[in-house]
């Protein structure tokens, strides 16, 4: 039996997962080009984390569960139903951007329709917000859970502690997924924390903690699935740490070679989860060379069209400046 079938994923589901993860990567790559061409002002990248993001989102009840994603979560939001065009519109900060109407930084995902809370620039604020949503689910007796992501750097913030602690005390249906990409901008993991694993911190809150290989979609899927079952059974929150590597600089304004070596990045690129995922699909006859070619072409076309649309879309009207300060 194949690995994915063992954990309850259909052939179609894994192919979809790969397609979305690849879309996130290609979209991100395009955005770097657009940024360097002076078309979009800023970019924070998802590269290296797409597989874990999509796998985690697939383990949720899409359409039912709530999310508070962080700024690298292109894979999460695509898997939950945000379109490539939506993401292009936010990158260009256009009026039609469903996240904020062009009012937020790029990567601050939010959508009432998709049950996705609007993010914010000071990191980790999303954790207590997601915990509040978890409390709302519990109070209403909803079957839904609240899924929140953050980088490992964010686990050093007070809000991580305050949110995680409250969620555990009240046994809330919350999953906190730490996307450990080894760097908080320029600060390496060793300079950030003294504990061996970020998931060790779960012990202090009295919740389950687990560390998984973020490059392994099935390990991530299974961890989040199990955590979601715990959450839905009233067994409280979980802390899942998915380990990967940030393959790009922190943002389009960062030069990562001031704090890490090209060799280190090259080594990480060889372990890229997207490559091993593709290899798995090919080995299991779920992706042929021809299918791969078609997939790449279809994604390219989708990005081309979205780019064309977003570039031509109107910017927010300065006359709307005062709208939304108060009701």
């Amino acid at each position: 039996m194949t690995k994915h079938k063992e954990i309850g994923l259909s052939d179609q589901a894994v192919v979809d997962m790969y397609r979305i993860a690849l879309t996130a990567r290609r979209l991100d790559e395009r955005m770097w080009l657009l940024n360097r061409a002076g078309k979009i002002p800023f970019l924070v990248s998802c590269q290296g984390q797409e597989v874990q993001q999509v796998a985690a989102a697939f383990a949720l009840e899409r359409g039912k569960d709530y999310t508070a994603p962080y700024y690298r979560d292109v894979g999460v939001v695509l898997a939950l139903g945000m379109s490539v065009q939506d993401l292009m519109l936010q990158a260009y900060a256009k009026a039609e951007d469903p996240n904020s109407g062009g009012r937020q930084m790029p990567g601050h995902f939010g959508s009432k329709k998709l049950k996705m809370l609007s993010g914010s620039s000071p990191v980790t604020t999303q954790v207590p917000h997601a915990v509040g949503i978890g409390l709302a689910c519990k109070m209403r007796g909803e079957d839904a859970i609240s899924f929140v992501t953050l980088g490992e750097g964010s686990t050093n913030q007070g809000d991580f502690h305050e949110g995680a602690n409250f969620a555990a005390v009240h046994k809330l249906p919350v999953i906190i997924m730490v996307e450990n990409n080894q760097y908080a901008i320029s600060i390496s993991l060793k300079q950030q924390v003294a504990c061996e694993k970020i998931s060790d911190r779960a012990v202090g809150y009295g919740m389950v903690g687990e560390t998984v290989d973020g490059n392994d979609p099935f390990a991530v899927y299974q961890a989040i699935k199990t955590a979601s079952q715990r959450a839905r059974n009233g067994e409280g929150p979980s802390l899942v740490e998915a380990i990967s590597y940030r393959l790009t600089p922190h943002s389009s304004d960062d030069d990562d070679l001031t704090y890490r070596t090209a060799e280190e990045v090259r080594e990480a690129k060889a372990k890229d989860g997207l490559l091993s995922f593709k290899k798995y699909l090919k080995e299991n006859n779920l992706l042929s060379d021809k299918k791969e070619e078609e997939l790449e072409a279809a994604i390219k076309k989708e990005i081309d069209l979205a780019n064309e649309y977003a570039e031509a879309a109107p910017s927010p009207d300065p006359d709307t400046l005062y709208q939304g300060v108060y009701q």
């Binding site: 508070a68 809370l117 604020t125 954790v127 207590p128 917000h129 997601a130 915990v131 509040g132 949503i133 978890g134 409390l135 709302a136 689910c137 109070m139 209403r140 609240s146 007070g158 809000d159 502690h161 305050e162 949110g163 602690n165 409250f166 005390v169």
Partner: peptide, 26 residues
């Protein structure tokens, strides 16, 4: 106790919790 409740001693957590709840209609 569902509608009037004590929180841990954590002001930022209290504020964040309120935001999450408020976005859900509370």
């Amino acid at each position: 106790e569902d509608r009037v409740f004590d929180t841990p001693l954590a002001e930022s957590g209290i504020g964040g919790l309120a935001i999450g709840l408020a976005t859900q209609g509370f």
